[in-house]
Amino acid sequence: MAEWSHHYAPVNGLTMHYVEQGDGPLLVLCHGFPHTWFSWHRQIGALAAKGWRVVAPDMRGMGRTSAPADWRAYDCDHTVGDLLGLLDHLGEQRAVFAGLDFGVLAIYDLAYRHPERLTAIIGLENPHWPDRPEKTPLAEAAEWARTHFVHIHDFVSRDDSHAELDANPREFLARVYYALSAEYHYLDVWKHPPGTRYIDALPPAPPLPWRWLSELELEFIVADYAASGFAGGINWYRAMDLRWHQRAPFRGRRCAVPFYFIGSVHDVDLEAWHGPDPIAEIKTQYEDVRRVEMVEGAGHLMQLERSGEVTRIMGEFLDDIAGRSAVS
């Protein structure tokens, strides 16, 4: 922690906050929702010690990075522009990008549009876009929501969906982190009827500390969302259909950037949002699949739930990338 440096930079019309440690080739770690750069805090130092310049930004609308009010400012043009702008600000032509959730989906958009700016991709949990070509994601969520609660539809169907989360960020974050973990089956929230509010659909969280998260660690993330609110993060959901349309020119094409993947056995996204066999689908999406690893005993927040194993695997991936780069 003592070697982290915090920065605020003008990037693509935002004030972007990021944390940096180390020297060497650039590795950018991109988080999802409702996370912040801090979800990578157990990996940053270890990967920097392997000879990498590690940068973990707060993504658009979350943490200490600016949160535009207009949901259309969360489309592919803007989120890809953020990553390009960060590279330019850091003075780097290219980087290894690693990410999870919305963060890794933004990386995939960058890889299709500007493959020359990526050395490799390390994807966690989300192996490819979850888009169905025949139906927009918000239309699909609305269809599911006719029979049961769906968090995506809850977020986008009410203008004030962020208000109750803003009122008690600690309770929401504790509940959703527990629900996303291997200790709970997240899809049990679908047992609630249509119209249920997200906070009510989530299970009560057991008292901290947990096996994989301390009270102080949660407080770091609570403090950021208490300051920013959740509207920016929810705008990523509101823009899902817009991003779906913007991805149309690339749908059906395989990504050429070297690809590495880590999934967890209990991840809800792999269970519900990436088709019947998402791991098998990887080779139809990428031309150069280097390694695929699955982690036991973790849910969606794998880099916290199984920190040591995830860090070890990422380190092995980076060794492979560095070795191949040296040969080439």
Rank of each mutant, 00 (worst) to 15 (best):
1 M>Y: 11
4 W>Y: 15
5 S>T: 14
6 H>K: 05
8 Y>C: 10
9 A>G: 08
10 P>E: 14
21 Q>I: 08
22 G>C: 09
25 P>F: 05
26 L>C: 09
29 L>E: 01
30 C>W: 12
31 H>Q: 09
34 P>R: 06
35 H>K: 02
36 T>E: 03
41 H>I: 00
41 H>C: 04
43 Q>K: 02
47 L>V: 01
51 G>H: 03
54 V>L: 08
56 A>H: 06
56 A>M: 02
57 P>M: 10
58 D>T: 01
63 G>L: 02
66 S>V: 01
68 P>R: 01
71 W>H: 10
73 A>P: 00
84 L>C: 10
90 L>V: 03
91 G>D: 04
93 Q>A: 14
95 A>T: 07
96 V>M: 05
97 F>Y: 14
100 L>Q: 12
101 D>R: 12
105 L>E: 07
108 Y>S: 11
111 A>S: 13
111 A>W: 03
113 R>P: 09
119 T>R: 12
129 W>S: 14
130 P>S: 10
139 A>S: 08
141 A>V: 00
146 R>L: 07
152 I>Y: 15
157 S>D: 08
161 S>P: 09
161 S>W: 01
163 A>L: 15
165 L>N: 09
167 A>N: 12
169 P>A: 08
169 P>V: 01
170 R>Y: 11
171 E>I: 00
176 V>D: 05
178 Y>P: 02
183 E>V: 00
191 K>R: 14
191 K>A: 09
194 P>F: 14
195 G>V: 03
197 R>F: 00
202 L>R: 07
208 L>V: 05
209 P>G: 14
209 P>F: 07
212 W>Q: 10
225 Y>N: 07
227 A>R: 15
228 S>P: 03
232 G>V: 11
232 G>I: 11
235 N>Y: 13
238 R>M: 12
240 M>A: 15
241 D>K: 00
241 D>F: 00
242 L>R: 12
244 W>K: 14
246 Q>C: 06
248 A>P: 05
248 A>T: 14
249 P>Q: 13
249 P>K: 13
251 R>N: 10
262 I>S: 08
262 I>K: 05
262 I>V: 11
263 G>Q: 07
264 S>P: 06
266 H>C: 04
271 E>H: 15
272 A>F: 11
275 G>W: 10
279 I>A: 05
280 A>E: 12
282 I>M: 05
284 T>F: 14
285 Q>T: 01
300 H>G: 03
301 L>Q: 08
307 S>K: 09
310 V>Q: 10
311 T>H: 09
311 T>N: 15
315 G>L: 06
317 F>K: 00
321 I>N: 05
321 I>T: 00
